[in-house]
Computed example of a mutant assay.
Amino acid sequence: MNYFIISQDERIQDAVQPMGISQVITKEMLTKKKVRDMDKLNLQFQIREQDTTEYVDFIEKPIPLLSDRGKQIIEKYVPKLYFKSVMLKDMKRLRQELYWLIVPPRIDCLSEQTEFHKDGTLKRLVIDESKAAPYKIFKIKGIMEEYILISLDVAESLLRRDFTGIRLKKVEKEIVEERG
């Protein structure tokens, strides 16, 4: 199966930008052990004021947020994925939009063929498909980057719909040499 890194399309200049998230949600809270601590939080954030605002279907930073219709698709493939509602508020225009924080599991699927720069960042990402196969959406253990990967069937489902602000980049898979 093929996998893709899902990211926010940076070509959309007026994409919605939530503010103040980093003061409320820490990186530690986005782990399997701590994620349930957010259940009791009422997450509402104002957005940066801009002349025009496009409510994209995927916000990558500071935390991964899916639009409500994006969540509906992902949830069909991964019903047990942790979703937490997040309300984005535009005070100037008196508008609110529902987004969903997603916390995919971190799995150990790095291939030995993965290459790193001296500073520890990725030079070339290669995954071991046999370890990734049971997962439809996940993050990778053992890398500094916070990439979210989705399987081919999830990617195709997103592409069949009119989503905005989503980019997909194919991930290399491990090449296993036949020994005979």
Rank of each mutant, 00 (worst) to 15 (best):
M1W: 03
F4M: 10
I6H: 11
I12N: 10
I12K: 10
I12A: 08
Q13W: 12
D14C: 09
P18M: 01
G20E: 02
I21D: 08
I21K: 07
I21G: 08
S22T: 14
Q23M: 04
K27Q: 11
L30K: 07
L30A: 04
T31N: 08
T31A: 05
V35Q: 14
R36H: 08
D37C: 03
D37F: 06
M38I: 15
K40F: 05
K40I: 07
Q44P: 00
Q44C: 03
F45V: 01
D51P: 02
T53K: 10
Y55H: 11
I59S: 13
E60G: 08
K61S: 13
K61C: 05
P62Q: 07
P62R: 01
I63A: 03
I63C: 02
L65H: 12
L66R: 11
I74Y: 00
I74A: 01
P79N: 04
K80R: 11
L81M: 10
K92H: 11
K92S: 09
R95N: 12
E97G: 08
L98A: 10
L98Q: 14
Y99F: 13
V103D: 02
P105D: 08
I107E: 03
S111L: 12
E112K: 15
Q113I: 02
Q113C: 03
T114R: 09
E115W: 00
E115F: 00
F116Y: 15
F116Q: 10
L122V: 14
L125D: 04
D128N: 15
K131M: 12
A133P: 01
P134W: 03
Y135T: 02
I137Y: 09
F138M: 11
I140N: 01
I143N: 13
I143W: 12
I143A: 14
E145P: 11
E145G: 07
E146V: 01
L149I: 01
V154Y: 04
A155N: 03
A155P: 00
S157I: 02
L158C: 04
L159Y: 09
G165P: 00
R167K: 15
R167L: 15
K169T: 15
K169D: 12
K169N: 13
E172I: 04
V176Y: 15
